[in-house]
Structures are given as structure tokens and as C-alpha cells.
Amino acid sequence: MTRMLSLLRQVFVVLALPVVLLAVWWVTSAGSENFYLPPLSEILTTFGEVWFSGRIVSDVLPSLLRLAAGYTLAALVGVGLGIAVGSSKALRETVEPVLEFGRAIPPPVLVPVLMLIAGHGNSMKILVILSGCIWPILLNTVEGVRAVDEVLVDTGRTFRMRARSRLHHLVLPAASPQIFAGLRQALSLGIILMVISEMFAASSGLGFTIVQFQRGFAIPEMWSGIILLGIIGFGLSLLFRLVESRALRWYEGIRLAERGGSPSKT
């Protein structure tokens, strides 16, 4: 029962501010004569018409699939490379300057370049997402692997842990808080790049549709797209937190214990 109540409380805390902001938007925009800032009520009426009449499948889904592909690839390559670089001092010293350089390039400027190389199709967009998302994942993984406690490493060595189980039971879990930090940064970056890659050259997708609306002066429709993007970003980050808090339960436990909380003994 108390669990239920605390859950309700949490939901309330999370939703309170957005609801207030929406209300303010609703009230101040009601009866707005400004062509570019239509009343929220009008935007919300268009929302259903615009998105639930096939565009979910024809535009939203392709966008999300490209995001999933680019993000997953970035995670695999970033974590894989990060482990290799983080484990070897020599390799780290060689590639670190290159990594810093790569991270410093704003990913959107790669869009024109990648368009030349990979054309206008899905692969270009996936590459754009990949090339932006990989840096935070890679650099955080390198840091995480490098910072594995040396006593733990020595423990693994004295018990002669094999390479495979050292990776699974020692290096990956030890670096996982950092890896997740990188994955979280990459997720918000990925959503931005998903939209941007569709603004240049595309025939489907959320970014493409929003730009189309804007060019056709379909302003309420354009706003409804922006709201949908917000909802998608929010949903994905919620999903991410869920996965993260499951995977890092031990880590949260330690932090709680260090702050003098009383973790349950189960």
C-alpha cells in the first residue's frame, strides 16, 4: 500500500511541472492571432489527424528504426573499441589525440560529407547517427575500463581468471557505470542527429515531415511534430533509465550505503 502511494507520489512529482507548463501554454495561446504561434488547442486537434493517419508507419517508424540501428552500432563499436583502448596503455597513448579530435567535430557537419559518400538513403542517416553517438560511448568506456580498481584486477589475476570471464565478470561490470553515462549522452545526441539527418535529404521521417510542414506553412502541423519529438525523447529516456537502474542496481546500492542510507539485506 505504501509502495503504491510512493509510486503515485513519484508520478505526481514527475508530471506536475509539465502539466503546469502545458496549462500556461494553453491559456496564453488561447485566441492567439499570431500565424506562427497558433493556440495549443488547435495544435492538439491537428496532432491526432496528422500522426494517427498512417504517418506513424510511414514516417515515425522509419525514423526510430534508423535511430535504433545507428545507436546500436555505435554502442557495439564504441564499447568494443573502448575496452581495447582502455585495456592497453600503449594503444591509449597512440589513439587518444585522435579520439579527442574526433569528439571535437560537431557531428552535423558530417552530414554533407556522408551524403557524398553514402548517398541519400538509410545508410547515410544511420552513419550520421553512428558517427555522432560513438564518441561519448567510446570515451566513457575508455575511462571506465582504465579506472577499474587495481585491487580487483590483482584479485582476478591471482585467481587466474580467463580472458573471457575477466571481460564478463570484471571489466564490463566495473566499467558499466561509466559506459551507461556514455550511452545516456549518446541517446540524446542520437535523437538530434536522427532529425537533422532527415532535414537535408530524405523522403520520409519525422525531421523530413516537420520541414515539409514548415515549408508548406502548415504551422499547427509543424508544432504537432515538435511535440511528438518531445514525447519520443521523453519516452526513450524513461526506457533508458529503466534499463540502467536494473543493470546498475549494485552501484546505486553502494552509493546509497556510502551516503549512510540503509540498504535492505536481501
Binding site: 580487483l152 589475476r157 565478470h169
Partner: peptide, 22 residues
């Protein structure tokens, strides 16, 4: 030259030698 088979060690930093995710 490397940790041999059949040898175990209890580290002075015992707390840090335990795997916190297990």
C-alpha cells in the same frame, strides 16, 4: 613470473578485492 596455480591471496584492501556486483 605470474600468479601460479594453487595460490590464493587475501589482500590488505579486502573491501576493494570483493566484486561489488556479485
Amino acid at each position: 613470473h605470474e600468479p601460479p596455480e594453487g595460490m590464493a591471496m587475501v589482500f590488505q584492501e579486502y573491501g576493494r578485492s570483493l566484486f561489488p556486483w556479485m
